[in-house]
Measured scan of single mutants.
Amino acid sequence: DTLHVTQDGKHIELRGLSEEEIKLVEELLRRGRKVEEALKIIEELRK
């Protein structure tokens, strides 16, 4: 699936995420994380 995010005035499209990963990214962003940080966390969880 694809998640569309706008952060720091930039539109970012995150592709290839599972539904659970999207929920996790959304939660991390709500808690003030940056998109880059959220993606690093997803990458770690995929290992």
Rank of each mutant, 00 (worst) to 15 (best):
G9W: 01
K23L: 13
I42N: 00
H11I: 14
V25N: 00
E21F: 02
T2G: 11
G16P: 03
E43F: 14
E20W: 13
L3F: 03
S18L: 07
L3V: 12
K40D: 10
E13G: 05
I12A: 04
I41L: 11
D8V: 03
R31H: 08
R33Y: 14
V5Y: 01
I41Q: 08
G16Y: 07
K23P: 04
E44L: 13
L24N: 04
H11W: 12
I12F: 15
L3P: 07
G9C: 03
R15H: 13
E27C: 12
I42P: 00
L14M: 05
K10M: 14
E43K: 05
E19Y: 14
K10E: 13
L45H: 07
G9Q: 03
R30P: 00
I41S: 05
R46M: 04
Q7D: 08
V35D: 01
R15P: 09
L3R: 02
K10Y: 12
R46W: 04
V35A: 06
S18F: 06
D8N: 07
R30C: 05
A38P: 00
I41K: 07
I12M: 08
E21K: 00
K47H: 13
L28A: 05
V25R: 00
R46T: 02
L28Q: 03
G32R: 05
S18T: 14
R46S: 03
L28T: 05
T2N: 09
K47F: 14
L14C: 06
R15Y: 15
G32K: 05
S18G: 04
L28W: 13
L14E: 04
E19I: 14
K40L: 12
R31F: 14
R33H: 11
G16L: 05
T6D: 14
E19H: 14
E36Q: 13
K40Y: 12
E43W: 14
E19K: 14
A38T: 07
E44G: 08
R30F: 12
V5L: 07
E44Y: 14
H11N: 10
G16S: 04
E44K: 07
D1E: 10
K34M: 09
V5W: 02
K47M: 15
E36G: 08
T6K: 03
A38D: 00
G9Y: 01
E20G: 11
V35H: 02
K23D: 08
E21H: 02
E27G: 11
E20A: 12
L17G: 01
E43M: 12
K23R: 14
E37F: 14
T2H: 11
E26K: 15
R30D: 04
I42T: 01
E20F: 13
L39Q: 04
K40R: 14
V25I: 12
E44D: 12
I22R: 12
I22Q: 10
V5C: 10
D1K: 06
I22C: 06
R30A: 09
R30V: 05
E26P: 00
L3N: 07
K34T: 10
T6G: 06
E37N: 05
D1Y: 02
K34F: 08
E27W: 15
E36L: 13
L45K: 06
V5S: 05
D1A: 08
R15L: 12
Q7N: 07
E26S: 15
E44R: 09
L28S: 03
G9P: 03
I22M: 12
T2E: 07
D1W: 01
I41F: 12
G32H: 05
E43D: 13
I12Y: 15
I22S: 08
A38R: 00
D8P: 04
V5T: 07
R31W: 15
L17P: 00
D8S: 03
L3M: 10
I41D: 05
G16F: 07
I12L: 08
K47V: 14
E19P: 14
L28P: 00
L28R: 00
S18P: 01
T2S: 12
L45M: 12
R30M: 12
D8M: 02
L3S: 08
I12W: 15
E19M: 13
L45G: 07
L14N: 04
V5F: 02
G16W: 06
K47C: 06
S18V: 05
I12V: 11
K47Q: 13
R30W: 11
R15D: 08
L17C: 01
E44H: 09
K40I: 11
L24C: 07
L45W: 13
K10I: 15
E26A: 14
E43H: 10
V25G: 01
L3E: 06
L28G: 01
E37Y: 15
R33P: 01
K34A: 10
E27N: 13
G32L: 04
L17H: 01
E20Y: 13
E20L: 09
E44P: 00
E19S: 14
I41G: 02
I41W: 10
K10S: 10
E20T: 13
T6I: 15
I12E: 08
I22N: 04
I22E: 06
E26W: 15
I12G: 03
E36P: 08
T6E: 12
S18C: 07
A38Q: 00
R30K: 10
V35L: 11
L24S: 04
K47S: 15
H4Q: 09
K23M: 12
E37H: 09
L28K: 01
G16R: 03
E43G: 06
K34C: 01
I42E: 00
G16I: 02
D8L: 02
K40V: 11
L45Q: 09
K40C: 10
I22Y: 10
G16A: 03
G32Y: 05
I41V: 11
L14Y: 05
K40H: 11
T2C: 09
R33N: 08
K47I: 12
L29S: 01
R46Y: 03
E21N: 01
R15F: 15
R31K: 09
S18R: 07
G32W: 03
L24M: 12
A38S: 05
R33M: 14
L3K: 04
I41H: 08
G32I: 01
H11Y: 11
E13C: 06
E43P: 00
K23T: 11
E27Q: 14
R15V: 13
E21R: 00
G16V: 03
L39D: 00
E43Y: 15
T2L: 04
K40Q: 14
K23S: 11
A38E: 00
I22G: 08
K23V: 12
D1L: 15
K34W: 09
Q7K: 03
G32N: 05
V35Y: 04
E37S: 06
L17I: 03
K47E: 10
D8E: 06
G9N: 06
E20N: 13
K10W: 09
L17W: 04
R31G: 08
K40M: 14
E21W: 03
T6N: 10
E43Q: 09
E13L: 10
E37G: 04
G9E: 07
